[in-house]
Amino acid sequence: MNRRRRVYEGKAKILYEGPEPGTLVQHFKDDTTVLHPKKTEVIDGKGVLNNRISEYIFSQLNRMGIPTHFIRRLNMREQLIKEVEIIPLQVVVRNIAAGSLAKRLGIEEGTVLPRSIIEFYYKNDELDDPMVSEEHITAFGWAAPQEIDDIMALAIRVNDFLSGLFLGVGIQLVDFKIECGRLYEGDLMRIVLADEFSPDSARLWDSQTAEKMDKDRFRRDMGGLIEAYQEVARRLGIMNENEPTRPAGPVLVK
């Protein structure tokens, strides 16, 4: 078996060279990392769940005409994606006060915001992904003004669609992080949704109980992370009650 060329490795995913030009294979790891406080742990089966959930969400977005890098899932941990030039920004959409926003502004967690808020953070692990303004983004050339407009329009469309999708299965979409990239097709370039959408990158609360169903369970030492991710997958209808989150034995990765 030929070894694949590793293009990039992040905290939760590895990108490999794809089978065709302009494609990559995105591999979901079990590594779980948070910055505040800084800690890392390998949680068996998390990558499988995130791959399945992200596949479902991106497939739904594609069907709605929202452009993404997703092509198809390949196996339990991997999916085929289009190669894009990642814009070095994390785009955070907030519907309900939680996490750093609640702490930063002294707002009680769980407060519904008057309107959805979009924030930008510069992707830089060494700097702990600092919050930046549109002025910073244009001044340092991370994105052009028109690209910022396109990113914000994309974020709003994603938020509108997914808020309804999750509400329909009894989950509040509190906030989420997305990344965007430049997809080049011949002489044309367009901004598309990239990276992933999973409980690693979103706050998801049970609509009735406000029970946390996301990475805050790890961040706040609450336990039960895998069970919460499994519940999200079950509510979305993409995982049977007794389906394992990992293979029972060795799996050959092609």
Rank of each mutant, 00 (worst) to 15 (best):
I178K: 01
D200R: 06
T245A: 11
M189V: 15
R182A: 01
L193N: 02
E126N: 01
C180Y: 07
S207Q: 15
E147H: 07
P244A: 05
D216A: 05
E231L: 07
P130S: 08
S207I: 15
L165D: 08
C180I: 13
F176D: 03
V174C: 00
G170I: 14
M131C: 09
D195V: 12
S201D: 09
P244Y: 14
D214S: 00
D175E: 08
V158W: 13
S133E: 09
P247T: 09
E231Q: 07
P199S: 03
I117W: 09
F120E: 03
I226S: 02
P244W: 14
K215N: 01
F161I: 08
W205D: 01
V232G: 02
I238A: 00
R217V: 09
A233N: 10
M131R: 15
I238P: 00
V232E: 05
P247N: 05
L113K: 03
C180E: 05
D200H: 07
F197K: 05
I118Q: 02
L188P: 03
R157V: 04
G237M: 14
D200G: 03
E179Q: 08
L173A: 00
S201R: 08
R190G: 05
S198L: 12
R234C: 02
V174M: 01
H136V: 08
V192D: 06
S198K: 10
E179S: 03
G249Y: 15
L162N: 02
N240C: 04
L225P: 10
R234N: 03
N242P: 07
F218R: 03
M222N: 00
S207E: 15
F197E: 06
I171K: 01
I178E: 02
A144S: 12
R220E: 14
L236W: 10
G141C: 12
T138H: 04
I226W: 10
R182W: 09
R234Y: 08
P145V: 08
W205E: 01
M131Q: 15
D200E: 10
M222C: 00
K177T: 07
E243S: 10
D200L: 06
L193R: 03
S133D: 11
L154F: 06
R115Y: 13
I226N: 05
P145Q: 03
K177G: 00
A194M: 04
L188E: 15
P114Y: 10
E211W: 12
W142V: 08
F218T: 05
I118M: 02
I171H: 02
S198R: 09
D214V: 06
L204E: 08
P199L: 04
A248E: 15
Y121S: 07
Y122Q: 03
R203K: 13
K177W: 08
M189D: 09
I156Y: 12
I148G: 00
A228L: 07
L167R: 06
D216N: 13
D128Y: 13
S201M: 10
R182F: 06
L204W: 11
